[in-house]
């Protein structure tokens, strides 16, 4: 069923279609020569952001909040995450001075969770951006030109995908090291084939559309075809898959740092805080739960945002 003027048609399939098709026809000028010219004015197509639901906006709010906290952690009145707080010796459990309590080294957990988001978010976004930068153009070209170039790249991507990613990451850590930059590179190496495949598949789908053929017949150059007719549909889907990818990258970073293979103490990351928390249970429940809930809230939200956006854009493209 087509979506008409952006408003979803609530109604049955099948015989109804006939009625709908006519409904799109405009009444003509009374027997006039002008043939199209619908007389009544119709609502314009809905914007992409209409009707995504409150859940989407809540999730977007949570994601934005974390991003803002990570960006401005220095400017906000958080305690220094790396220094020992004297007030912790008196009371390590959550209190007015330390909302989430202190860890075993007497540091404020709240500020460590906030500062710890920096590593997770930077690694998450940077690694996916890097993967998109590599996988995106390659996927676009492979999907548009197909042929030998496509086959070669697909084989390379499949080889990368066939390695168990954790083993691959551990091996690369051993070579590169475990700074923030290194971890970003490592996750990008694991993630680019996925984005390459998404972009390639979307490109193949859109490059076969009749309007692409029509544009080529009009004399559009290949860059013009890609830029004007293919990219506008590929970019949104690449971005929405990218958002889901960010969540996966953060989980991966968390996993690595849980294993002690990522950015290590004293720099806080959600992963190494969770690792520390598991060792000190049950006395310091907050030490485990706080970073875990932080990570969970961010990943759930960004996944939800990506998923809603993807569904919305798929519907629009089906139009």
């Amino acid at each position: 069923m087509k979506e008409l003027y952006g408003a979803p048609v609530s109604g049955p399939e099948g015989p109804f279609e006939m009625a709908v098709i006519t409904a799109t026809r405009a009444p003509s000028h009374l027997g006039g020569e002008m043939v199209a010219a619908p007389v009544e004015s119709r609502p314009r197509a809905r914007r992409w952001y209409h009707g995504l639901g409150w859940g989407f906006w809540l999730a977007t709010g949570i994601v934005s909040l974390w991003i803002l906290l990570a960006l401005f952690a220095n400017l906000l009145p958080f305690q220094n995450p790396d220094t020992l707080q004297s007030s912790c010796f008196l009371n390590a459990s959550p209190s007015a001075a330390h909302l989430l309590g202190c860890d075993q080294d007497g540091r404020d957990i709240l500020s460590r969770v906030v500062f710890g988001s920096r590593v997770s978010l930077v690694v998450g976004f940077a690694s996916i951006a890097l993967s998109l930068l590599v996988g995106g153009p390659l996927g676009l070209l492979a999907g548009y030109f197909r042929g030998g170039f496509d086959e070669l790249l697909s084989i390379v991507a499949n080889v990368f995908l066939s390695f168990p990613s954790l083993v691959l990451a551990l091996v690369v850590v051993a070579f590169l090291g475990n700074s923030e930059f290194d971890i970003t590179i490592i996750i990008a190496i694991v993630a680019w084939p996925l984005l390459f495949r998404v972009v390639r598949a979307t490109t193949i789908e859109y490059a076969q559309r009749d309007y692409v053929l029509a544009a080529r017949a009009l004399g559009a150059t290949t860059p013009q075809v890609l830029w004007r007719y293919v990219l506008p549909d590929v970019v949104p889907s690449a971005i929405t898959y990218g958002l889901v990818g960010v969540a996966l990258a953060i989980v991966a970073e968390g996993g690595l740092s849980f294993l002690g293979q990522s950015v290590g103490p004293p720099i806080p990351t959600w992963g190494n805080m969770i690792a520390a928390g598991t060792e000190s249970m049950p006395q310091y429940q907050s030490l485990l739960l706080s970073p875990a809930i932080a990570m969970f809230s961010f990943i759930l939200s960004i996944n939800y945002v990506g998923d809603r956006l993807r569904r919305r854009l798929d519907l629009r493209s089906a139009l």
Binding site: A19, A26, P27, G32
Partner: peptide
């Protein structure tokens, strides 16, 4: 036949 059939909703 000039024009198009009427809109069945109007």
């Amino acid at each position: 036949i000039p024009g198009t059939p009427p809109n069945p909703a109007a």
